[in-house]
Amino acid sequence: MTDDSTSGRVSRRKFLAASGTVGAIGLAGCTQSGDNGGQSEGLSGTIDIAGSSTVFPLATAMAERFQSEHSGVNINIQSTGSGGGFANHFCPGRTDFNNASRPIQSEEEEVCSGNDVAPVELTVATDALTVVVNDEADWVDCMTVEELRQIWSAENPPSMWSDVNSDWPDEPLELYGPTDASGTYDYFIEAILGEEGPGHRQDYSATEQDRTIIQGVEGSENAIGYLGFAYYTENQDRVKALGIDDGDGCVEPSLETARAGEYTPLSRPLFTYAKQESLAEEHVAEFARFWIENATSQEIVADEVGYVPLNDSDQQEAMDALEAAIEEAQG
């Protein structure tokens, strides 16, 4: 993964494409606009963020807008995977936030605690984890949870499509997915394979870059992969999303089905974790407030990025947790 950076405002299409080949993005030097007002005027400093590739486009959209109002703040965002961010950046105390597509694990909390890092969990959106196949795979439009489990399980993993369903072709399965540093990988195990199950098969093309999953599936009629919904929506002219049958019929991934709780078991909350100690710095606290204040935005979260915004109740819960952490950090 490359740690090149780019400056200024970038479009959603550009930063989604860039995140496939560029592991980090630096957003600096935006033109200041609007009235900052109040205690936030004149904010300056650096904010470092690592973690989930799934949350990366949402974090970037929020950072762009925040810096358009606060040109003295530089926000550096790396797409490292949820686990990679916790292990290599956040818990060692090197970043102010860690984006995550699954909750922090107890062993990660222990590492954070050992380094005097107190994580503050903030829910920022809901995702519909999406299973994709090649556009030419006309034999499948929907897949049961059990079929998904068979394909990806480490126990007697099938080699051919027909090994899973006799109506499917006698052609080799080609699998693409995230690495074990990804929260998407962890969530897929929890939702599909089961935490007490045999685990995730390892004979697949694993990558930290969602763009590589799209490229792999697009390039072979026999390919299948999974990734966050935002990356599918940006590339829905290149691959086909499968509906998922969890026992009550086939449900396609969409903002509407995820919001309604119908797209099961692959709809999931997305998080950012703030380092409480960093919230003592006003520019960090104000960015965290800005993100949660805008987490209900249909325009940003849904229309621009492709996730389900928070409802008012979830937003208030996140804001209460944030304000309590800020008060403790600055008290």
Rank of each mutant, 00 (worst) to 15 (best):
P103D: 10
A181V: 09
E234T: 08
T123F: 08
D203P: 07
A61R: 02
C250G: 04
A154Q: 03
D141G: 10
D127H: 02
S79H: 00
D163C: 07
R65D: 12
E110L: 11
G197V: 04
P103V: 10
S44W: 09
T2H: 10
G225V: 03
E286K: 04
T264W: 02
A318Q: 04
G20T: 05
E146P: 09
L43P: 00
E64P: 02
L266F: 07
F66L: 12
V132Q: 00
P265W: 11
N98S: 09
Y273N: 01
N311G: 13
L322I: 06
Q39M: 13
I300K: 01
D170R: 08
F15Y: 11
G225M: 01
G93L: 10
E121K: 09
E174V: 08
D186G: 11
E41S: 10
S220R: 09
T184I: 02
S5T: 15
N294A: 05
V124G: 01
N98D: 12
D246Y: 14
P157W: 06
T60C: 11
P158H: 07
A125D: 08
I25K: 01
A302G: 06
S159E: 12
L16P: 01
G216I: 01
M160I: 09
M160Q: 15
S82C: 10
L27G: 00
E277N: 08
D96W: 00
G114C: 15
M1R: 07
R289L: 12
L279H: 04
G216T: 02
G37H: 14
E174W: 07
F15N: 05
G225W: 01
S278A: 13
Q316A: 14
T60V: 11
M62T: 03
R9D: 15
A118R: 06
A191Q: 06
E110W: 04
V145R: 05
A59W: 00
A302S: 14
A206L: 06
D245G: 06
T60E: 08
N222F: 02
Y232F: 14
S153Q: 05
N98T: 11
Q276R: 06
G93S: 11
T123K: 15
T95S: 04
N235K: 01
N76M: 12
E304W: 03
A50R: 04
T21M: 12
R289D: 07
A61W: 00
C91K: 04
E304K: 09
I214C: 03
R65K: 14
G84W: 04
A154F: 03
E41G: 13
S166M: 15
L27K: 02
P198T: 07
G216C: 04
A118P: 05
V145A: 07
G306H: 00
M143E: 14
R268Y: 11
L129S: 06
R268I: 09
Q330N: 11
E155R: 08
V22C: 14
G85L: 01
M1S: 11
E277Q: 11
T2I: 15
T179H: 05
A50D: 12
K14R: 13
L242A: 02
W291M: 15
G20A: 07
Y263I: 01
T80K: 00
